[in-house]
Measured scan of single mutants.
Amino acid sequence: DYYQTLGLARGASDEEIKRAYRRQALRYHPDKNKEPGAEEKFKEIAEAYDVLSDPRKREIFD
């Protein structure tokens, strides 16, 4: 679930989605986080943001 990936509730505003993405992206960015799995988590976060930030894709997902 993309909302869960970003730590959001369904119905989150565009601003909340953007804030959550930035927070998670900084936390799991491969240059900042060298833990195994961080790069994969970063890709999941980017995919979630891509879907939720686009109104058309978000409507299909919801």
Rank of each mutant, 00 (worst) to 15 (best):
D1C: 06
Y2A: 05
Y2P: 07
Y2I: 03
Y2K: 03
Y3S: 01
Q4V: 05
Q4P: 02
Q4K: 13
T5I: 14
G7R: 06
L8G: 01
A9L: 08
A9G: 03
R10Y: 06
R10Q: 14
R10T: 10
G11Y: 04
G11I: 07
G11M: 04
S13Y: 01
S13H: 06
S13C: 08
S13K: 08
D14V: 12
D14F: 08
D14N: 11
E15V: 07
I17K: 00
I17D: 01
I17T: 02
K18A: 12
K18G: 09
A20H: 05
A20V: 04
Y21K: 04
R22N: 09
R22G: 13
R23P: 02
Q24E: 07
Q24C: 14
Q24W: 12
A25C: 06
L26G: 14
L26R: 12
R27D: 12
Y28K: 07
Y28V: 07
Y28G: 05
Y28L: 09
H29C: 11
H29K: 01
P30C: 11
P30F: 07
D31N: 13
K32G: 06
K32W: 00
K32S: 03
K32P: 04
N33Q: 11
K34L: 05
K34S: 07
P36S: 12
P36Q: 14
A38G: 11
E39M: 14
E40P: 08
E40R: 15
E40C: 12
K41A: 10
K41L: 09
K41M: 10
F42R: 08
K43W: 08
E44K: 03
E44T: 10
I45P: 02
A46E: 15
E47V: 11
E47R: 13
E47I: 13
A48P: 03
A48E: 01
A48D: 00
A48C: 01
A48F: 00
A48K: 00
Y49V: 06
Y49R: 05
D50W: 04
D50Y: 04
D50A: 13
D50I: 07
D50S: 13
D50M: 10
V51T: 15
V51Q: 03
L52Y: 00
L52V: 04
L52E: 01
D54C: 11
P55K: 14
R56F: 12
R56M: 06
R58M: 03
R58F: 01
R58G: 04
E59W: 02
I60L: 11
D62I: 04
D62Q: 10
D62R: 09
D62M: 09
